[in-house]
Design a protein around this nucleic acid. Structure first.
Lengths: 207, 207
DNA sequence: TCGCCTTTTGACCGTCTGGTAAGAAAACGC
DNA sequence: GCGTTTTCTTACCAGACGGTCAAAAGGCGA
């Protein structure tokens, strides 16, 4: 009966969460076009019209999911502390991102799917929030490099490399598992070791 | 009238190529479910029934595309020469992969899309051709590391890191462009510089 | 128990989509 | 030029999909 801001009864809050959880599962597996409302409703254990009682459209569910996702997805980068010790900060950032790939692979895949298809529903966020935050943190990296705390390299591309290598373990999980052999349960641990070595030492042996 | 191996008249060969080219464009942009036969037919400049005269189904087009893709996609890794100079070989591999992301982004996205969605049409290839080749090349990397030519690190994860960082520039192109600022034409050049520095020196400054 | 508001459902609709049928139009061998 | 095969088109279909509607069911205060 009321409108925007906190429009929720207890049941509405619960059901919306239930639906978003189900939608995350289905969207991350089949993509936006590939997912159907029937699938999401079934996953949530409710009927399709009931689902549409809580969200006006398929698109609305997807959008809400992306909106919420964006915050938690940027959080690790946001935590990069300009006052901290450079190498320690970066190591922590890389590990946090890797942990997110391990613990929230569906979120990662949802996001990856959106970007691969040209970000039709989140271009604004990319040129806005994402770009601002990356620019801000790139500046910090630049200062650290100028101060001789890190090897000089393009800070934007460094952030891309951290995203790419860590999210790879969520987005391309089937491939990683296929190549490593089916039941490699230690892959995230190995990845953590590897990434630390790669990012901080590189391949050139002289130490 | 005849059957399998070289079943083609000149027109059939040409039209099939035309269709595959159109399908690559559409599939890589919208994904398998997101693409429609009408779209592909229109892109190819023919009618939908005519398209289905050359391919039995939507799935058949996609499968053929993936099959062809796989070879060229693995080619750079295949060229890694066990007899070559380790750092030179790896540098060449990284650059070749980056060039492929620059020159064939549609192919990269098609592949990424397939993997993200759980590789429903190419699991065999992953556990077969891909795994074999990666295992073989990982062995080479291991020897190089044992011989002190490269820093010791997990060779499988090293290959993943090369895939992730280079393909990122094709698969996440919109994001890269959004973050760097719209018309960054030098991004592939910068990426090449950056990746060389990252992979060979790492972030720890001591040289 | 009654009345009111919220929640849920079954039936339905228009559109889109992959795919088919049947015949017209080219292309080609002779 | 003619008959045959290949190529292409118009019309169509059955199922799936996003979404609507009216009414039933449930929750809850008085």
């Amino acid at each position: 009966m009321n409108d925007a801001s906190p429009p929720q009864t207890r049941i509405q809050r619960e059901k919306r969460e239930l639906i978003l959880e189900a939608a995350l599962e289905v969207f991350s597996t089949f993509g936006f076009r590939g997912a159907t409302l029937d699938q999401i409703a079934q996953q949530a254990g409710i009927s399709k019209p009931n689902l549409l009682y809580y969200f006006p459209s398929k698109e609305a569910i997807h959008t809400e999911l992306l909106d919420r996702l964006m915050d938690s997805w940027l959080a690790p980068l946001d935590q990069l502390d300009p006052a901290g010790e450079p190498r320690k900060e970066l190591r922590a950032y890389i590990l946090r991102k890797l942990e997110m790939s391990r613990d929230f692979p569906r979120e990662s895949r949802l996001f990856a799917n959106e970007i691969i298809h040209g970000a039709p529903r989140s271009t604004d966020a990319l040129t806005g929030r994402v770009k601002s935050l990356v620019d801000e943190k790139a500046e910090i990296l630049k200062h650290w490099m100028a101060a001789g705390k890190l090897t000089k390299m393009d800070p934007h591309h460094l952030i891309f490399a951290i995203w790419a290598t860590t999210q790879h373990y969520a987005d391309f999980d089937v491939q990683v598992r296929a190549v490593l052999g089916r039941d490699d349960e230690g892959r995230f641990h190995d990845a953590a070791d590897f990434l630390e070595r790669l990012f901080f030492s590189g391949l050139d042996p002289r130490a």
